[in-house]
Amino acid sequence: MASASSAFAPQAYLQAQTRWRAVELAFWLSCLLPFVLFPNYLVLASQIAITALFALSLDLILGYAGIVSLGHAAFFGLGAYSAGLLAKHGWGEPLSGLVLGAVVAALVGYVSSFVIARFRHLTLIMITLGFGLLLHELANKAHWLTGGADGLQGVRMWPLLGAFMFDLWGFTAYAYALIVLFAVFLVTRRLTNSPFGLSLRGIRENPVRMPAIGAPSVAHIRKIYTLSAAIAGIAGALLAQTTETVSLETLSFQRSADVLVILVLGGAGRLYGGFVGAIIFMVARDRFSGLTPQYWYFGIGVLLVAVVMFLPNGILGGLARLAAAWRGKAT
């Protein structure tokens, strides 16, 4: 080892760490399989992709910067209502709806980030929770705008790129959601491999040390929070467009809690965790849709306790540990 160190090239080493792995390529290719294998489940597949995108947005703040939010649905809902309202009032072009959803969510995220970055622990949890509840209640009361508890009806989307109609089988919806998911993923992957991504991991690992190495944590947190809000907004907009309706549920505490469960189940802080969690969660919910909701949440509760106690880094963390142990044995 000592002799190798003289030839050690740190930059090449870090470069190798960011290279695309075969599993990653395999994962993305397998995302195309539903088109041929489960053409009857493309609607579900599109919902999974949207949920995965939402979980990815949470991963940026929770998994990378260590900010616990119990109100992330606020941004999802903002994106959904923005895109939904735009389409309802006569402009059904999908891509501009996405942009609007992202911009509105990002603006609100940016403003609230000034508050978020100042707090930690219980106060932060309370503020995110309170903010989520506040928006939910606001949308509930603003019946004239949002349709309140009845949801936003009359959303009519134009064909995607002027060519692809949104069909009943979810073919366009899934293709659309998947492409958006992949595009956003590329951006976040680049981001997490950047110097900024390294700083975020620093904040997660040790927020006390960061200022002592001259890092402006508050500025970093504001930035990632805004970006995360924008991505959550895109996810919400996608849901509004592909389902052509927006329900109050998009802003609910339930949705905030669900996405947290999904991310933690899959494994936070590794980009793909939310994807794995979303697939398992959504497929299971589809399978058990006949079940009364209480039983479903009994399962979720047990799962949460089990993950915290036995699988601290989620499924992907567990797999990584297994792989490391296996490699250790092999050598």
Partner: peptide, 17 residues
Amino acid sequence: ELDQVLLTIGIAFISVA
């Protein structure tokens, strides 16, 4: 605090069920 939040939300879910 994330672990604490997750564990206790889980317990709350179970109690509701």
